[in-house]
Design a protein around this nucleic acid. Structure first.
Lengths: 356, 356
DNA sequence: TCGTTTCAGTAAATCGTTTTAGTAATGTTA
DNA sequence: TAACATTACTAAAACGATTTACTGAAACGA
């Protein structure tokens, strides 16, 4: 008859079974013929454990290692009221932007022995709401909000990246948009461009307005006026280049001539290039294009993309750094602060002299 | 003097404070002048709660809603010994592959009211180990292992996607590699190609060998032999097209002529195209290229990529489906099973008739 | 020799839930 | 009217750790 208690019966049954359900502190203590208290104190190197002789301590460490004891995180969190976990709100997992920021986030967290939940909300307020609640239920110690317009009045520490959260106490990690815009426009002006078009981001993207306005302002500095019908917008939350393709088509349909295009990001720039090609225009011969972000594909696209690189990874790790500072030092929550990071112009093949 | 207990002192102090640290069941119960037991039974619609009059029940529900009571997940998990969480092992967050699979994973989990931890291990065994331990500590109920070679002998339910886990009881979600290879080769043969090169995946990628062998076999069916020096390999774990660029360079350096190239994935195909261009070869005029995956950029690259689409999102959601089945129905763990998904050939601009 | 440290630990409370095993009070049935 | 069922609840144990407040024994100092 089958042994129901030990379905994975083997020669080495006990070993298997102990692995099956993990060892508790109580079991470990009874194995050692000590109290759970003692074992816990020693394993956590509590000051109280000073009086326990080295010999006993080693016995405890050895046995714990031998039996592969791992304290149960759930129990520990409940008691300590700490979870070592933060929640990360982000629009999409897909695309270059998210993964680059997240890689910075992950690296820094790993280093600090923290962990994270991801909530990707696809720009739907209901999801933002749902994930925020979810994070609170799971007792995260803080929230990192990436490119997410949030109105959640939570009392958790919050840092937002590209988010422009004006509520008191929020920390914002933002790009120096002014400087980015000047770089882009200056580069085009140096190539002799004056008829410049813009593809601005989706209305729900938090960088959309600043980025667009900064470019218009920068252009004004060079005495260039950007015409209204040369401003197109990404529509819908398809993370592929398709949105850029459609936005560029609209520009072409307007009939207004342009020799340069500043696109909201690299993904949409790639789509725009396709639209121009289909209209018989060559990049960069007929139209120069500048993207934004410098995702992996930018360098390898044909033509390779001139782009404004955001230090995305750095923004991720800076965000985490600031969030953890808030969590640990319990920094005065009423001080809002803004951390600005600098963009970099990466010149490649998609921009060239304006056709005269 | 400052009030240390209530730093966010406001007119509405109490309200703020109650929000500050979330309401416990005990507090809610005492507010209601009932025992925690009663409140818990009612809120969870336990069968025992039948004897509680509707009136009281409503009073409980209303008050809970009014005070915004949320049961503490940590405490609940500890008691129930359930976390409603799985661990997901994946090489990288970046790149098209991961995000497409994950979007399937996420969608299915959300629907089933489960959640997940991501461990991205960058192909380093130490990280796989670390994350697996981490998952166990945090009491995940199962592990979904994506494109990850794993040897972890855990007794948790496991499903692996593109992983070929042969250990007993594992469920594998795999692509029909044979069929994929035949599609690719047949497409090239129809265009008259006979000198076919291969860029195989990194040695640590679990699909590398099968995919390469399947192509060689498929070619053999069409009486084409793939020469040894026309097989190159991706090296290193840079998730950008750079690896494909380098692998293609090696092919070119070998001096062996080829008119078609099957690349391990779209990312590397994009890199390969760059290498060919630099060598003065046009795609598809001189060399036809087939990618793999059909990531977002494939359609918009210049030239757009002919590729073998893996139903990545479907694979993610299938993986979750099977994992949850295992978790819930406690399916006999000793039965291994393989779920095969079908590829699809997407013909675009990167393949054409062979130069005669 | 008495009082005080130090040593080597342990008992019990605690975190916030869920759940088992009750208990009074009332109503119903034989 | 005694036995039983139902109603409307509650006390206390449990989950697996951490931590506070002890205890009994030995060692030490005066």
């Amino acid at each position: 008859m089958a042994d129901f208690k030990n379905p994975n019966n083997t020669k080495n049954g006990l070993n298997q079974v102990t692995k099956r359900k993990s060892l508790t502190l109580k079991e470990l203590a009874s194995e050692l013929k000590l109290s759970p208290t003692t074992v816990s104190l020693v394993l956590n190197s509590a000051p109280t454990a000073n009086s326990i002789p080295k010999e006993t301590q080693n016995r405890i460490f050895d046995t714990a290692r031998r039996l592969n004891y791992r304290p149960n995180y759930i129990a520990r969190s409940l008691r300590a009221q700490r979870t070592h976990t933060i929640g990360v709100l982000i629009p999409e997992l897909s695309g270059g932007y998210a993964s680059m920021v997240l890689s910075g986030v992950e690296e820094k967290l790993l280093e600090k022995d923290f962990y994270y939940f991801i909530g990707s909300h696809r720009h739907q307020p209901a999801f933002i709401e749902r994930y925020t609640r979810f994070f609170m239920e799971r007792c995260v110690e803080g929230i990192l909000s990436i490119d997410t317009p949030e109105k959640h009045q939570t009392f958790l520490p919050i840092v937002s990246i590209s988010g422009h959260d004006d509520s008191k106490g929020a920390t914002n990690i933002v790009l120096n948009h002014k400087s980015a815009a000047i770089m882009a426009v200056e580069h085009l002006v140096n190539f002799g461009h004056t008829k410049i078009a813009i593809i601005k981001g989706q209305e729900f993207s938090s960088d959309t307005e600043v980025r667009c306005l900064s470019i218009i302002e920068a252009a004004a500095k060079f005495e260039i006026q950007i015409k209204n019908n040369l401003v197109s917008q990404l529509i819908g939350n398809d993370p592929s280049p398709q949105t850029g393709y459609l936005a560029a088509k609209k520009l072409l349909e307007s009939g207004e001539k342009f020799t340069a295009l500043v696109s909201f990001n690299d993904m949409s720039a790639i789509g725009a290039i396709r639209a121009l090609k289909e209209a018989g225009l060559e990049v960069p011969e007929d139209v120069s294009i500048i993207g934004f972000d410098d995702i992996y594909e930018a360098k390898f696209h044909n033509p390779s993309l001139t782009t404004i690189r955001q230090p995305l990874k750095e923004m991720g790790s800076l965000g985490v750094q600031h969030l953890l500072d808030k969590i640990h030092n319990n920094i005065d929550e009423n001080i809002s602060r803004t951390v600005t990071v600098e963009p970099e112009l990466i010149v490649r093949q998609s921009t060239a002299k304006a056709k005269s």
